[in-house]
């Protein structure tokens, strides 16, 4: 299906697939940093498993991106040999783990968005994209179940756990506006029914977050000042450090196999 795309569509689709791949690659890498450090063994395993799912999904998007781009690059070239400004992920996913509460707040914001997004993406007329979405929906269900349960437990737990998760929510809230931002790329893809309308997801996302936070006795920050830039390659200072660690082996020994 990637053979008969015109140039404009090819470029837009490539860009779009980078966004999807990068969101999951960076978030997966962040979660993998917990490996061996999580508060309890079961949680160490859970976060490792979720990280693997996300990195696997990113591999599906990025290999499709490489195929669409058709310039002899591979998913590994795209993961390891692009610089910070070439990454198109949401700023939310590059935010550091800080503590378990931050990790859970970041994950829950993303999981809820991802669930709504995938449901629409599975209807894409670009069938390879719809296929990856269909597969990811199953995985997103248990990811969301995991992060939601922790939001409830921390929020409705002790005073300390509640303070920690509320602080994390307040700090990370400003990165949630990017979920619903669209650019020209979205317009081009929406015309062909390849990509969902992100604006339609916003209300539902807010409703789900509101209802969980209410149950968890947490409050929604009132601020309406949202960070922006990730889709254009503008990032917070954290992404560069993450990439340095993620890419060093591949860049030090290009083409190495193990």
């Amino acid at each position: 299906m990637t053979n008969n795309l015109d140039n404009k569509m090819r470029e837009a689709l490539f860009e779009y697939l980078l966004r999807l791949g990068d969101d999951r690659l960076i978030l997966g890498h962040r979660l993998s940093e917990w490996c061996g450090h999580a508060p309890i063994l079961e949680e160490d395993i859970a976060l490792g498993n979720i990280a693997l799912d996300l990195i696997g999904q990113s591999s599906a998007y990025l290999s499709l991106a490489a195929e669409v781009e058709n310039k002899n690059r591979t998913e590994d070239d795209l993961s390891y040999f692009r610089n910070e400004y070439e990454f198109k992920n949401l700023q939310l996913v590059e935010q550091p783990n800080i503590d378990f509460a931050y990790t859970i707040a970041r994950q829950y914001f993303f999981d809820v968005y991802e669930g709504l997004f995938l449901e629409e993406l599975a209807k894409s007329k670009f069938e390879q994209l719809a296929g990856i979405a269909e597969k990811s929906i199953k995985e997103n269900k248990y990811h969301t179940r995991h992060s939601k349960h922790w939001v409830l437990r921390l929020g409705d737990g002790t005073e300390e756990s509640r303070n920690k998760i509320q602080t994390a929510i307040n700090d990370l809230w400003r990165f949630t506006g990017e979920f619903f931002e669209e650019t020209e790329v979205d317009e081009i893809l929406k015309e062909k029914n390849f990509a969902p309308d992100l604006k339609l997801l916003k209300q539902k996302w807010n409703e789900i977050i509101n209802s969980t936070f209410e149950e968890a006795t947490l409050s929604i920050p009132e601020s309406k000042d949202f960070a922006t830039g990730g889709r254009n390659g503008i990032h917070t200072e954290h992404l560069g450090h993450l990439l340095a660690e993620m890419q060093i082996v591949a860049r030090s020994f290009p083409g190495a196999k193990w």
Binding site: E42, I45, A46, G48, N49, I50, H146
Partner: peptide, 13 residues
Amino acid sequence: LTSEFGSTSCKSL
């Protein structure tokens, strides 16, 4: 159920 996540993606504990 101990955990929905196990030693591999496909298993729960």
